[in-house]
């Protein structure tokens, strides 16, 4: 009897844990989310590199994202990856825009 009570309560505790785990997985980011977000950011930053126009802020956001992921904080890691991707895309936009726009500043 004692045993089964214990067993039941252990089971209950486990299912609560599992359930809360499931809920938080549903609400929060997983490692897979991070990997996808990070890879998208990296791709954009590599493209900026080909345009010879990476931003230091993109590089540090990527670094911070990696660190957060290593610490198991995938919410933060995903947010930072998305931030890095946005910065990388802005740098690509800048390069494209400056292809001709640089002439506006030239001393004539």
């Amino acid at each position: 009897m004692r045993n089964s009570v214990i067993r039941i309560s252990v089971f209950c505790a486990m299912s609560v844990l599992l359930a809360s785990g499931a809920i938080s997985a549903w609400a929060a980011s997983t490692e897979a989310d991070y990997k996808a977000a990070y890879s998208a950011a990296e791709t954009a930053n590599n493209e900026a590199g080909k345009l010879r126009n990476q931003w230091t802020t993109t590089v540090s956001a990527l670094k911070d994202a990696k660190k957060a992921a290593e610490g198991g904080d995938f919410d933060k890691a995903v947010a930072l990856s998305k931030h890095a991707e946005a910065l990388a895309k802005a740098s690509i936009f800048q390069s494209t825009e400056q292809k001709d726009a640089w002439k506006a500043m030239e001393i004539k």
């Binding site: 126009n53 931003w55 230091t56 910065l87 800048q94 640089w102 500043m105 030239e106």
Partner: peptide
């Protein structure tokens, strides 16, 4: 070289000329 000098870059969106010409 001229293009590099006048091209805006970086998050601050500055060219060399922003600081050293303007």
């Amino acid at each position: 070289g001229k293009k590099y000098f006048y091209t805006r870059r970086g998050q601050l969106n500055f060219s060399c000329a922003t600081c050293h010409v303007q």
